[in-house]
């Protein structure tokens, strides 16, 4: 006679302990997820909600550049509108994670800063930084754009560093005849 009652009581006890167990698991999950989210925000330091989204995409590996903005940047680059081109590349790749976008950014800095007699040091320095980012992202990057004379980041960096250095060849009057690459 007592068996079913005992079973029932045991059944209720089991339900209560299961509920507690689930609450404990939920609590642990909330704490773990919360700390991961806070650590992510404080380590990546996004400056806006848009950056929170793009940095989250980088963290979970789904980051992709905005292809339309990249094409717009490429068109501006080919039309020698370098400031517009860089703005479009920045919009296309806000996290500076795409080798091609960073390569074109560096190239636009080179072309804008290039001068027949002297180059713009500030732009060239920014160009070296951009090309270094390309090498960090993909050390074996090589552009497939046949319209460019310098297709690898190493070649571009050499050209930029050459422009920053003052050598005796800088005073060679024949420099007037050199061409932008």
């Amino acid at each position: 006679m007592n068996r079913p009652a005992k079973k029932r009581i045991l059944g209720i006890e089991t339900i209560v302990s299961m509920k507690e167990k689930y609450i404990h698991i939920l609590s642990i999950a909330i704490v773990a997820a919360g700390f991961v989210f806070v650590a992510f925000l404080y380590s990546t330091e996004p400056r806006s909600f848009a950056e929170v989204a793009s940095k989250s995409q980088v963290a979970i590996g789904t980051y992709e550049i905005d292809r339309a903005q990249f094409d717009r940047g490429l068109a501006a680059f080919r039309a020698d509108q370098f400031v517009e081109a860089r703005a479009a590349f920045d919009r296309a790749d806000p996290e500076k994670r795409d080798a091609a976008a960073q390569f074109y950014t560096a190239y636009s800095l080179y072309r804008q800063g290039w001068g027949r007699f002297s180059s713009d040091d500030a732009l060239f320095k920014s160009g070296v930084e951009a090309v270094n980012r390309v090498l960090e992202i993909d050390p074996n990057f090589r552009s497939s754009d046949t319209t460019l004379s310098l297709r690898s980041p190493i070649e571009l960096r050499t050209e930029l560093e050459e422009g920053l250095r003052i050598t005796t060849s800088d005073f060679n009057p024949l420099r007037f005849t050199r061409e932008r690459k």
Binding site: I23, L26, S27, I30, V31, G34, F35, F37, V38, L41
Partner: peptide
Amino acid sequence: PKDSRGVKDYVILPLLFLAVTL
């Protein structure tokens, strides 16, 4: 109910403190 205490202690409290941490 005991459950409401459990939810308060194990769900609401950590959420409050995590919000402050953030």
